[in-house]
Every structure is written in C-alpha cells, then in structure tokens.
Design a protein around this nucleic acid. Sequence first.
DNA 1: TCCCGAAGTTCGATTTAAATG
DNA 2: GCATTTAAATCGAACTTCGGG
Lengths: 348, 348
Amino acid sequence: MVTIRDVAKASGFSSTTVSIVLNDAPLARYIPAVTKKKIERAAERLGYRPNQFARSLRSKRSHTVGVMVFDMTDPYCTLVLRGIENSLYQASYLPILTDVHNERSRFERYLEMLLDRRIEGLVVLANWLFLDINLLGDLEKSSIPTALIGCELKGDAVSSVIVDNEIGGYLALEHLHSLGHRKIAFIRGPKTLADSSPRWRGIRNCAKKYELEIDSRLVADLPESRDPLSSFQAGQKLTDELIRHKRWFTALLAFDDMTAFGAIRALSKAGYCVPEQCSVIGFDDVAPSSLCTPPLTTIRQPMQTMGMRAVKIVLEGIKCVLEKRELTAQHGRVAPELVVRESTRSLL
Amino acid sequence: MVTIRDVAKASGFSSTTVSIVLNDAPLARYIPAVTKKKIERAAERLGYRPNQFARSLRSKRSHTVGVMVFDMTDPYCTLVLRGIENSLYQASYLPILTDVHNERSRFERYLEMLLDRRIEGLVVLANWLFLDINLLGDLEKSSIPTALIGCELKGDAVSSVIVDNEIGGYLALEHLHSLGHRKIAFIRGPKTLADSSPRWRGIRNCAKKYELEIDSRLVADLPESRDPLSSFQAGQKLTDELIRHKRWFTALLAFDDMTAFGAIRALSKAGYCVPEQCSVIGFDDVAPSSLCTPPLTTIRQPMQTMGMRAVKIVLEGIKCVLEKRELTAQHGRVAPELVVRESTRSLL
DNA sequence: TCCCGAAGTTCGATTTAAATG
DNA sequence: GCATTTAAATCGAACTTCGGG
C-alpha cells in the first residue's frame, strides 16, 4: 500500500506538505503552484489513496450513516431505501445496512455495532414496529443525529418523518364516497400500531363531512403481529368473515396494501369480482400494487421522498454537531396522495 | 470517550495488560485471574468501547463487506439482501450497501469508495445487468474476495452464485405440458441477458423430450432494457400482440414474474381470464407473485439461499487471504423449484 | 526457565508549532 | 514580517521487546 510518506519521498517534500496540498487545507494558500503540481502528479503516479482508518482516527469522522430497518422483507422498505441511498450518495456518505428482523436482541446488538463504527448519523425505518420506549434509551444518550421513518417520538431527541395518516384516511374514504359507495367495509390497523388511530380518525372525519354512516358491523381490526405477511393473511381472513356475515358492502377500505391484497383474494375466492362487485382501496402504494391485475387503487406514501427527507434531517444534524450548535429534533409530516387505478369502480 | 489508557489508569495496570486481557490474546494465559477480573470490571464500569478506527488501522481489518446492488427497486433484491444480511450478522460482519442504479459511473465511484473503506469482501447482486467486462478490471486486480449473484464470470478471479436456468426452463414447460397444454406462447428474455439463453435451452430440451412442437409465431423476445419495470410493460405489450395475431394459445410461459404480470394484465384487458382461459407461468417467485390474485405459478429462485451462499464464499475467501492461502473462485449453481399456485390450470 | 507486567514502537494521516531564507 | 516548508506530537489500540522476580 502506498502511503503519504511514499508520496512525500517521491515528490521530494515532507508528508506535512503533501497532506496540506492534497486536502487543500487552509495553509495550501501559501504553497506555490509548482509545488502543488509536483505533489499531485506524484500522488497520481503512485496511485495514492489515503487510508481512511488513519484519517478517521485523527478526525473522528467516519462519513458513515447507520440504516436500521425493522423488517427488510416488507415491500415498504424498497423505495425508502432507494431514497436514503440516493441522498447519502450525493453527500458522499456510505450507509451501513442492518435489518433487525423485529427482534429486540438484534436491535440492541446492531445498535452497539453501529455505535462502535462511529456512525455519524442514524436512519431508522420503523415500519411495522411495535415500539418500545426502552429501545430509545441508548439512542437518546448516544447524541447521534437520528431520524425515524414511519413513526413519531415525543421529545426532541429523535427526529421523525411520517406520512399524514389522517389526510390519507380521509382521502381514501372520500374517493370511495365520490364513486357512490355507501355500504363500505373497513379493516383497521392493529391498535398497537401508531398509524392505525390517525388513519381511522381521518376516515371518521370524512364520514362526518359527507354524513356517511359507518356500520360498526362492517368494521374489523387487524390483529397485532410483527410479520408483514400476516396482514395479507389477516386481511383475507377478516374479509372472508365479513362476506359470510351476509351484510353486503360495495367497497372495502383496507388498512394497507397488503391487507387489500388479502381482501381481494378472499373476495375472489368467494366468487366476487374486483372492482365489478366490490371496490377495494389500499394504503402505501408498494410495488406489487401497480403490478397486480386489477392494479390497486391506493393512498401513496411518498416513500422515496421520505427516505430523502430523513437523510436531509440527519445530515443537517451532523452539521449541527460539527459546529457544536444546539441540535433539536425535526418532525416532518409528508402528504399522501390518492392514486386511482382499477380496483375501485363508480356506482354512479 | 474513554480509552484503553483510562481503563489502565482505573485498574492500576498498564494499557498493554489491558489490551491483552480484553482481547484474550495469547499472552493472556499468563495473567492471573485476579488481574483479569480487576481489568474487566474497570472496563465495564467505565463503559469502555475500543475505538474501531485505531483497531482497524493497526490490524488492517475492517470487518466490513461491500454489497453492490445493480437496481435496488427490483423486487428480486429483497430476499437476496435478507440472506446476505443474515449470514453477515452471524459472522459479525457489517454490510455497506450501495445501489449503482445500473449506471457505469455510479458503479465506478462506489467501487472506489468501498475500496477506500478497505472492505474485506464484496458481494455483487448483478440482477438485470448488462455486463461489461471492463467493470471487472478494477475488481480482479483488487484481490478482494468477490461473489457475483445472478451471473457468472469466466476465469477464477470472481466467484458466482447463479440459479440453474436450464433446469428452471425445463420445469416450467414440463409443468404446462403435464397440465395438458400444447399450444403454448413464450416470452423469452432479452438476448443480452445471460439468463435468457440457458432458460430457453431448458425449454427446448423439455419440448424435445415430450415431442412438443414450439410454434415460432408464438415466441416473442423481451427488448433489452435496464429498468426492471420495463419487463412488465414489455410483457404486456408482447402479449397483446400475441393475442391480436389471433393464433390462440392456452398457456404462456414468461421469462420472469414481472413479464408474467404484464402478460396477465394484457390477457385481462383483452377479456381473457387467468387461468380459466389461459394459464401463465413466471420465473423467480418475487414477493408480489404470492400476493396477486390469482397467485402466480412460477419457478422459484431460492433467493435467500443464494445470498447466504455468496456470503459464505466471500467469508471463506477472506479466511484464505488472511492465511495467505491461494484463493480460487467458486461457481455455485443452485436448483430452482416449481411453485404451483393458481395461475395455471389443467386442461385434462 | 517460567511468569507477569511495562515501556516503547507501529499503523497512516492530520495538525501544531516552529524553523528556514 | 512574510512566504514556504517541516519536525514532532497526536489519534487509540496492538504488538514487540525487555526486565524483574
């Protein structure tokens, strides 16, 4: 491996000068262009690449950000990760990816490993997380700029980026209503999930606005679970029960896309066509939604944007820390968007 | 930050002794249990965590593996990444994730960054890659154990893990044939993609075995593209053309699942039901396949296994390098598996 | 010779303080 | 005093060498 001393020797200057020149440090002002040229050419010729370990040891900087995903297999992750990666790339940071499999022990172990690597910031993709306050103890005291995607935390230690679930819920029901649906079934999220209640609130607001009555016999709740696939299965099972109760509905509003896929499966098995006999709307707009037939009408979370936003917050946090300014958490809330495809149909 | 010297001071021993004890180095044999206890307790009490930069600088090891994905948005990545992550976790390695967006410049920049970080190994997820030999120049000379997932490379510089496409193609056609299908349409992969030709070879072998005639007017080719979504669109378009040519078929064998989704969309738009009027089989078994209705019959690539396998190879390579043994590439080929779901139906 | 522990060197780059003409 | 350059200290851990009992 070629070191700075090799470059020094080859160029005939000291390693100090080489360092100053190659880093374009303040003192480089005083160094004549000829010297710079010589040094740069020597470095080039030898193929010199500074040792990042040495550099980091000295500067205490890693140019690395930790990314912690709660369950990688959730299709929700894909685009968020793309957003994170892209923003990091532009800032010349590299991400260390960890997947905690929704396991507490894994979370703790990974967090220690990341802290040991002196990550400068942390992005946590808390999709499908049943959050436990303890998990954050380590985080808060670490004083590493952190952004949580998908759930919000009280206090100003940890930033967050979430979708506006209330607006999303409102948009979903408004769409069904505008299509003429009045008998609507609902599959709500698990009570322990933070998204569930605001989404439902939005739905109720919309119902009130349009004087739509919600039949409580057409409302089902997803059970708590830490497996993203389970919401597909639960969606199927609950829809099946709804159908068997013979209380018919012309549309179904699902908690998320996975649930909607399960609902469509159940409807289809029972001999009902979507959207001819029953409209279905989801939430998230994960990749499969546009691929399925019929493609799913849904409320899109701007996932890539959310990833980018989280990185932006973390990067600003890092700058704060470097300049020893006070660091306060930011809480971003992005607007969801109705995506009309073909799983919903007008009754009018 | 508490350093080894702080621990030395607090325990009353020298930093040498502390280092030996905490790392359980060979010399630790000679150190009495009392001393060890004292040192360990001091370290514990102070919350000492060794500085990885210093450690890496000295040992020249990073305990980091680079992971390079060609297009993160491809659903094919998800499970492979899970496999990679899991194996790395068990070996206490951490992955740096990079997504090259199928762009040459990004590949090169990321490769340099990873090399600068002194990654000990590299896993490349070359899904949907139109490989260019030049890209590998840097790789070969870097002498970093590397495993390519999804495509194979001549020579013994770079290891690889691929699915046995020929068997997969065979299985797919055999399944359709066993269901009684004789008029079968095919959408082949792009000619520039390495997977395409062996997959087609398997199909032809199977056709010969069962004396099935392949009607060349029912064979279409996916165009070259570097966007995974494009195979959905192309699948839809090609199927549409196939339908319009009025040369009917009872089953369609698609190059991959994305293509199959496109085909199903086209059939549905043209008023044909899957599988009642036309069976469709895919290849890969990406996540959406089991979520769609009807769920897709397909040839599964054991993606998680492939990720694990690649990491295993890389880890062995790292051990090789450490022990200065000769490093030779391994070329793994894993068996695909027929997954029968509901997009195919028996004619018998 | 065996056991225990410490002093000092090394890894490679950055930075401070200081020395030249 | 100024422009130009550099010796030496530093970051934190790990390893080599050595000395005392």
